[in-house]
Design a binder for these strands. Structure first.
Lengths: 202, 202
DNA sequence: CCTACCGATCGGTAGG
DNA sequence: CCTACCGATCGGTAGG
C-alpha cells in the first residue's frame, strides 16, 4: 500500500511503470524486463514496482492492455468518422505503418510478444491473441463493407485477403525493427494498395 | 575437456545439445533456454552443457547455424536440380509451408529469434540477419531468372515482390504457431501463386 | 563430462 | 512506496 499517496498519485505511478515496461520490453522482450531492471530504470524499489500489480504476470497483462489501447488510440480512433470500406482500410494500414516508423512501438510490441509467447499457453498468449483478433474483426468488417459497396470483385475471398494483409503488416514490422529500412512504410503501403485496389482491365 | 570420450562421441554430444536447445527454444525463446533447464532436460551437468561451446552465447550462435542448416537441407536442397524461376520459387515456398506445419520448426525458430533480438545489437542478431539475407538472395535470384524468362511482366518491381513474399511467410508462421490454423499452408501457397502467377488478361 | 562452488540476480514477501 | 530479507536460479569456473 501507499498511505502517503492519493489515488491520483497511485494512478500516475502505475502509468509511469507501464510506460517504462513497454519501452524496455521493445528491446528486451516481455520476459526480459525483470522487476530489478525496471526498478533501477524507474529509480524505485522492486516492491514499489510490483506492488501496484501484485505479480509480474499481472504487470505483463496490464502492459499488453496499455499497448493495445495506445494502438487503438493512435491508429484506429482518428478514422472513426470515415466511411467503412477499402478507403478507410488503406488509411488504417498507412496509419499503422507510420506509427511503426515513429519511436512509439505499441504495434511492434504486440507482434513481438505474439512471437515470444506463441508456444506458451496462458493468459499472456490469450491476451495477445485477443488484440490480434480485434484487428482481424476490424479488417473483415471493412472488407465486407467494401464487398457490399462493390469496391471488390464479388467472388473475393475475404479470409485470404485478411491473411495477406496480416503478412504485409508483419513484413513491415520486420522491415522497421530488424532491417531499419526507411522505405518500409512506403513499400508496405504500396503492397496494401496492390491488394485492395481493384484491377482495372483495359 | 572430456578425456574419456573420442572425437566422434564429443561431436555426438554436441549434436544432442544443439537438438534439445533448438526444441526448447521454440517454446521458451532463445534467451529462455537456460543452462540449468538444458542440463536437466539432457540429464547432464551444467558444466557438461556449456563445455563444448564455451559460453551461452556461443551455444546460441551454434544453434542458429544448426537451424539454418536444417532449413537449407529440408527446404532448399531438394530443389537444387530444378530450373530457376517462378516455378521453383513457388515450390520452395510450398516446401517451407509444409516444413512449418511439421513438428520440425527451424524456420519458425529463425523468425522467432529475429523478433526476439531485433532490438538487441550483437552477434546473435547479426547471425539471424545473415540467415534471412541468404533467403532473400535466393528469392531475388529466382525473380531475376523469372524476369529474364518473361515469366513476369518486364516492369515488375522485384524488391516489392520480395517484400510481399516475406510477408506471406511471416503470416504463415503466425498462422501455424499462434493460431494453429491447419489451413495455413494451403492459404499461404495460394497467396504466393497470386503474387507470382502473371495475370492473364481475357 | 562430473562435483562443488562462486557472486549476482531472480520474483516475491514481511513489516512498516 | 521503502528497507531488509527469503529461497531459488542464473551463467560460469576450478579442479579432477
Amino acid at each position: 500500500m501507499s498511505p502517503r499517496k492519493s489515488a491520483a498519485d497511485a494512478a500516475a505511478t502505475r502509468a509511469r511503470i507501464l510506460d517504462r515496461t513497454l519501452a524496455l520490453a521493445v528491446v528486451h522482450g516481455l520476459e526480459g524486463v525483470t522487476i530489478g531492471l525496471l526498478a533501477e530504470d524507474l529509480g524505485m524499489s522492486k516492491a514499489g514496482v510490483v506492488g501496484p500489480f501484485g505479480t509480474k504476470e499481472e504487470l505483463h497483462l496490464a502492459v499488453l492492455d496499455e499497448a493495445a489501447e495506445r494502438f487503438r488510440a493512435e491508429v484506429l480512433a482518428p478514422l472513426a468518422g470515415a466511411r467503412p470500406g477499402t478507403g478507410r482500410l488503406v488509411r488504417a494500414h498507412d496509419a499503422w505503418f507510420a506509427y511503426m516508423a515513429s519511436d512509439r512501438h505499441a504495434g511492434c510490441f504486440l507482434a513481438a510478444v505474439a512471437a515470444e509467447f506463441d508456444a506458451r499457453p496462458g493468459p499472456v498468449r490469450d491476451r495477445v491473441r485477443e488484440a490480434f483478433a480485434r484487428w482481424d474483426a476490424f479488417v473483415l468488417a471493412e472488407l465486407r463493407a467494401a464487398l457490399d459497396a462493390a469496391e471488390l470483385p464479388p467472388d473475393t475471398d475475404l479470409d485470404q485477403l485478411r491473411f495477406e494483409l496480416r503478412g504485409i503488416t508483419l513484413a513491415a514490422d520486420q522491415g522497421v525493427q530488424l532491417w531499419h529500412d526507411p522505405e518500409t512504410p512506403a513499400r508496405a503501403g504500396r503492397a496494401v494498395r496492390r491488394l485492395l485496389t481493384p484491377r482495372r482491365l483495359p
